[in-house]
Every structure is written in structure tokens, then in C-alpha cells.
């Protein structure tokens, strides 16, 4: 599968490991922290309203990134804690797991952040996130009517996404 600059979506998405819908929700943020897309499939618990929830999620990822950049045990030059990192700069992370959910995270060089929250037993979803990013490029970025930085309202993208996520094990 091509990740950057691919004009075609790979014909066979990464093979889902098991049948059934394990995904809880998904967020897409741009580099300014605007929530471009929020989809939920199975979310019984809401502790905050939608806007606060998105802000908290973005804040968590931002802080976790500065934490991992500072903690990186393989490099000696880490800079100061809390200094904003450019995409691809410093040590980032690709996911975390709690007892009730697993969060997978991907950041593109342009600062788009894709977050997928699934069942804690799901495997490595990095390839799936790349595939979702390809869907985003195909259905959203290449849409001439789409204004960059505005929330995504594309039924075609949503249905394709739903279909794909349903297959993730």
C-alpha cells in the first residue's frame, strides 16, 4: 500500500483479524486542533459534552507527545518539556491501552491526527490507520468542494469508513 502521494487506494485493505465491530469511535484533528471528523459506533459512556470531549482528547495527545519526546531513552538531546513538537520531530507514540479501550494514533507530516478507539484486545492498527488516511485523502482532500480546515461532511467518506471499520478485528 502506498502511504504518501498514492493516487489509488490499495485494492486490498489490511486483512481484518476477526469479524465483528470492535471499534468505539474515531477522531480526526488537523494541526490546529480543530476536530475535522468525529464518528462513533459504540459509546455507552459520555462524561463530557462533545466539544469538551474533543478538546480533552486533543490535549491528551498533545501532552502525551511532549511526554514521550521528553522520556525518549535513546536520544540525549531532548529539549525542554512542553515545547511544541512539529509533526515527525522528536519521539512520538502510536497508541496506548487501558483496561477498557485501546487508542491508536497516527500523525501525518501535515499534522493531521487520526485517532481510533477500539476494544483493548485489538492488535496493531497502524496499517489500518494508514488505510483510513488514504480514504481521507481520496474522499475528502481530493474533493474540490472541500475547504481545508472545515469539518468533513462527506457521506461517501462516512459510508466507506463505516464499512472498513466494521471489518477491523
Amino acid at each position: 500500500m502506498q502511504f504518501f502521494g498514492g493516487s489509488e487506494i490499495s485494492p486490498s485493505p489490511p486483512a481484518p483479524t476477526a469479524a465483528g465491530n470492535n471499534a468505539h469511535m474515531m477522531y480526526v484533528f488537523n494541526r490546529n486542533g480543530v476536530c475535522l471528523l468525529y464518528r462513533e459506533w459504540n459509546r455507552p459512556l459520555w462524561t463530557l459534552n462533545a466539544q469538551q470531549d474533543h478538546k480533552l482528547m486533543f490535549g491528551l495527545l498533545f501532552s502525551l507527545k511532549s511526554l514521550t519526546a521528553k522520556m525518549d531513552p535513546t536520544s540525549a538531546e531532548k529539549g525542554n518539556l512542553g515545547v511544541p513538537q512539529l509533526p515527525g520531530q522528536g519521539c512520538s507514540f502510536h497508541g496506548f491501552r487501558t483496561n477498557t479501550y485501546k487508542l491508536s494514533f497516527m500523525e501525518t507530516p501535515s499534522g493531521i491526527k487520526i485517532i481510533l478507539v477500539t476494544h483493548p484486545k485489538t492488535g496493531d492498527l497502524r496499517e489500518s490507520l494508514k488505510y483510513i488516511y488514504n480514504l481521507y485523502v481520496e474522499y475528502v482532500v481530493k474533493n474540490p468542494l472541500y475547504t481545508p480546515g472545515s469539518p468533513v461532511r462527506s457521506d461517501l467518506f462516512n459510508t466507506t469508513l463505516d464499512q472498513y471499520v466494521r471489518g477491523i478485528g
Partner: peptide, 15 residues
């Protein structure tokens, strides 16, 4: 997304 969460158990960073 579901109740009964007790926080992060494993954080997977690049390195």
C-alpha cells in the same frame, strides 16, 4: 467510551 476504566496500562512510543 465504556465505564470502569482505570487508566493507561501500556503506552507504546516509537522508541
Amino acid at each position: 467510551p465504556v465505564s470502569g476504566c482505570s487508566g493507561i496500562e501500556l503506552l507504546q512510543a516509537d522508541t
